[in-house]
Design a protein around this nucleic acid. Structure first.
Length: 427
RNA sequence: GGAGACGUCGCAUAGUCAGGUCUAGUGCGCGGCCCUGCUAAGGCCGUGAGGGGUGCAAGCCCCUCCGUGGGUUCAAAUCCCACCGUCUCCGCCA
């Protein structure tokens, strides 16, 4: 939810943000007009209501004819109050409807434009030249081929049991996922995050409050019979965790690391990434979530990005960091950095982590505040990925060896009983 | 699945049966000041959230919120309905 006070006091900043995102700046003026209307309606209601309350006290003490007269006046007032309230409510509903369509104000420095207008901030590590290492005849194996040889991934039976975009992680595949997630959790705990295992079914209010029922409502599974939603990330549950609370952030950010299954319908991506486990309906993820003051949010964003990069270093993956363009941020984020690992089989970059600074946008809708000298104000929320099932894709492909075995990064070995190499089964 | 109890401004609780002086009382906690050479104990004052008006400002005034949403009434914490949540007992399953 956009800050109406900011919008009133500095409409140009919001208009500029809208333009950078490719959204309509005229919405700002609509909101200003509707807000003025709601306020005048509210004032009328409050005046009438004050009179009604005063009258109630007189009625209680009056007798006889005087009382009858007051009751008659009261009846009139009751109707006027009801009408004024209906007016004010209607104006408020219109205001909300339009205000909801305004996305968060982007942070200074975010590149303008859409999906392809990201800015590459840096490259870390160098993608291997497999042809140089193993000879020009070497055929790069993709993660599914590698995974099947290792008896680690079974998409055929996943489809048999649950349909397209489902899979079994088997044997060393299952262990590899647990290793990645455990390593992520350990890293988070060391950095002061509170580990959390979160609900994956949430109420409609929570799903709406976190902004996932907006433009991307199609992506979300809904359980009709129980009116619950399956989360696409533990961010949903973690954001809802402190809903309607006043937090004390004087001791620094509140940091949580959520471990959960994630569910996505992938409604708009028919035909994309259909092979293997790049794009699936269900996966696991360890997600960082921070509550900070607005002033500290950009610094915290840099810290979350740094934690992600530490995990990528632990997995020994070559990657690049991009500053996502304004038009591709989604409504809640004011800035977003993605880390993309190299995908040898497709000679392209694949998103492994994404960290967003939502400033006060999400917290305002969720009613999460902090105390200040005068009163309270909305806090900032940030989130970022530490590990997901998808990391297995990058791990297998980047660490493949000539014979189809896979090198295990030193940082993951403690979580795999010391395994240094994953070897094909039955070969 | 069946039966019942409950949900009040951080926590605990009064108020609900008999609607109007509830402008929601009290205790604890918290903050300030006072007393006391330290400490213990004590005294006084203040202390929920959201919104609006007014003022240079300290402040003052008004409205909303008693789990949520409806309804009855001149008037609802209080009466009625639905929903959500918590607890107890019974049944069933593990």
């Amino acid at each position: 939810m956009i800050d109406l006070r900011l919008l009133r006091e500095n409409p140009d900043a919001v208009r500029a943000s809208q333009r950078l995102r490719g959204d309509d700046p005229a919405l700002v003026d609509q909101v200003l007009e509707l807000e003025a209307r709601r306020r005048s309606g509210l004032t009328r209601f409050e005046e009438l209501r004050a009179e009604q309350k005063g009258l109630g006290k007189q009625v209680a003490q009056a007798q006889g004819d005087e009382k009858q007269a007051l009751l008659a006046r009261g009846k009139e007032l009751a109707e006027a109050v009801k009408a004024a309230q209906a007016d004010a409510d209607a104006a408020g509903a219109q205001l909300d409807e339009v205000a909801m369509r305004i996305a968060n104000v982007v942070v200074d420095g975010v590149p303008g434009g859409g999906e392809d207008d990201y800015e590459v901030l840096r490259h870390v590590g160098t993608p291997r030249d497999l042809a140089a290492e193993y000879g020009p005849d070497f055929a790069v194996r993709d993660h599914l081929e590698l995974g099947e040889r290792l008896a680690a991934i079974d998409t055929e039976r996943g489809a048999k049991v649950s349909g397209a975009r489902f899979y079994f992680l088997t044997g060393v595949g299952a262990r590899l996922e647990l290793a990645l997630l455990m390593a992520a959790m350990d890293k988070a705990v060391a950095a002061g995050f509170t580990p959390m295992i979160t609900p994956t079914l949430v109420r409609p209010e929570v799903m709406r409050g976190t902004g996932f029922l907006g433009a991307h409502a199609d992506e979300v599974y809904r359980l009709e019979a129980d009116d619950l939603y399956l989360v696409g990330t533990s961010e949903v549950a973690l954001a809802g965790y402190h809903a309607d609370e006043i937090l004390d952030l004087s001791g620094g950010p509140r940091r949580y690391a959520g471990w959960s299954a994630c569910y996505r319908r992938e409604a708009g991506s028919h035909g994309r990434d259909t092979r293997g486990i790049i794009r699936v309906h269900q996966f696991h993820k360890v997600e960082m979530f921070s509550w900070t003051t607005v002033e500290d949010s950009e610094a915290e964003h840099a810290r979350l990005l740094a934690f992600e990069e530490e995990m990528l270093a632990l997995a020994e993956l070559p990657y690049r960091v991009i500053d996502v363009a304004a038009g591709d941020l989604g409504s809640s984020a004011a800035r977003k950095f993605d880390c993309e690992a190299w995908l040898p089989s497709q000679q392209r970059w694949l998103e492994l982590t994404s960290t967003s600074n939502c400033t006060t946008f999400q917290a305002r809708r969720l009613g999460v505040r902090e105390r200040t000298g005068g009163g309270t104000r909305a806090v900032a929320t940030l989130n970022g990925t530490l590990a997901t099932t998808r990391w297995i894709v990058a791990l297998l492909e980047n660490h493949q060896q000539k014979d189809g075995s896979v090198h295990v990064p030193a940082g993951l070995r403690p979580y795999l009983g010391g395994l240094e190499v994953l070897r094909p089964v039955g070969a």
